[in-house]
């Protein structure tokens, strides 16, 4: 308080009376936005430029050379491995998206419409959020004692006599990849949908009921259309996270499945940077197409 009191007279004498109502000088927003612009320029735009440049470079087993060859693209686009990997990635995207959308919508719906006090809503929402603020790697590892050959689930199933021998497909399989991705990413669907659902004007639902709509009609014709922006934002998160994922696929499939991200990560570890860069450009194009498609349907800027 004392600092402000001292600063006040000086500041007032700086600004002549007629201009007092004027907001800060017009260049202030530029200064305020500059750090964000500089950081994103240096660590997002420049690196992407570097990837695009290096994707045209040449390489051998030892190092990479500045050049202009389209060989990296020809190799990656001309190989059936790339296309089947892409297909596999899109398969993960579709499955994980469908499951997280279903789970996310009903969890958000429960929180928004069935939990009565906002205090309880916040508490239950926090309960969902806490695991997402812990390490992804640890959360993946934590499935091992549960799903493994001698894990909890298999022991329980064998003991109950449901299966004669431990199920092998539970861990280190595509099933495990999908399970872990749903585990890791479903909050990204819950949060935006919850945000749109709690802001729905309850009188709209009353009006629909008064007009004779049944529960399903209210859900389908009132709630879901109003929840679309949240669904879109959640979908952008989940789709881009799954598209670029490599660590879940590598760890949970035990090396038995592939994705675009994993292919890039493997090429990086083999120091084939130009090949990795060409695939990275392809992945980026795919992500941008997906995002543009979703943004065409919903303008998320209005929703913030």
């Amino acid at each position: 308080m004392s600092v402000a009191a001292e600063a006040a007279p000086a500041a007032v004498s700086d600004a002549p009376a007629p201009k007092r109502r004027r907001r800060a000088p017009p260049f202030a927003p530029y200064l305020q936005a500059m750090p964000l612009g500089l950081i994103l320029g240096a660590f997002l735009l420049l690196p992407i430029a570097a990837i695009v440049i290096v994707s045209f470079w040449d390489y051998d087993s030892v190092q990479i050379y500045p050049a202009f060859v389209t060989l990296n693209y020809a190799e990656t686009l001309g190989s059936w491995v790339t296309w089947s990997t892409l297909l596999n990635t899109l398969k993960f995207v579709a499955i994980v998206w469908a499951i997280t959308l279903f789970v996310g919508f009903w969890v958000a719906y429960f929180l928004a419409f069935h939990v009565r006090t906002s205090k309880m809503q916040t508490l239950l929402f926090l309960v969902c959020t806490v695991p997402f603020l812990t390490s992804n790697i640890i959360r993946m590892i934590s499935w091992v004692p549960f799903l493994g050959r001698n894990g909890l689930l298999n022991s329980a199933l064998v003991e109950a006599g449901i299966v004669p021998a431990p199920l092998e497909f539970l861990l280190f399989s595509e099933f495990a990849v999908v399970l872990a991705m749903v585990h890791l990413y479903s909050l990204f669907m819950v949060t935006p949908i919850f945000n749109t659902l709690v802001r729905i004007d309850r009188s709209l639902i009353e009006a629909a009921r008064d007009a004779g709509a049944n529960g399903f009609q209210i859900l389908w014709n009132v709630i879901i259309p109003l929840a679309k922006p949240g669904i879109a934002i959640g979908s952008i998160f989940v789709i881009t996270l799954v598209l670029g994922d490599f660590i879940t696929v590598r760890f949970m499939s035990g090396g038995q499945s592939a994705s675009m991200g994993l292919m890039i990560a493997n090429q990086i570890s083999l120091l084939q940077y130009p090949a990795a860069a060409a695939n990275a450009v392809a992945l980026l194009v795919l992500v941008l197409i997906m995002m543009a498609a979703i943004l065409r349907i919903v303008d998320i800027r209005k929703e913030l």
């Binding site: 660590f43 997002l44 690196p47 570097a50 440049i53 670029g244 890039i264 990086i268 992945l283």
Partner: peptide, 26 residues
């Protein structure tokens, strides 16, 4: 700038990793 910020969210992390690694190398 807003769209750049959003892009930062959707660009896969492996790309950021590779890109910054390459940019530093160059």
């Amino acid at each position: 700038l807003f769209y750049l910020t959003i892009s930062s969210l959707v660009v896969p992390s492996i790309l950021i990793s590779l890109g910054i690694g390459l940019a530093f190398q160059i």
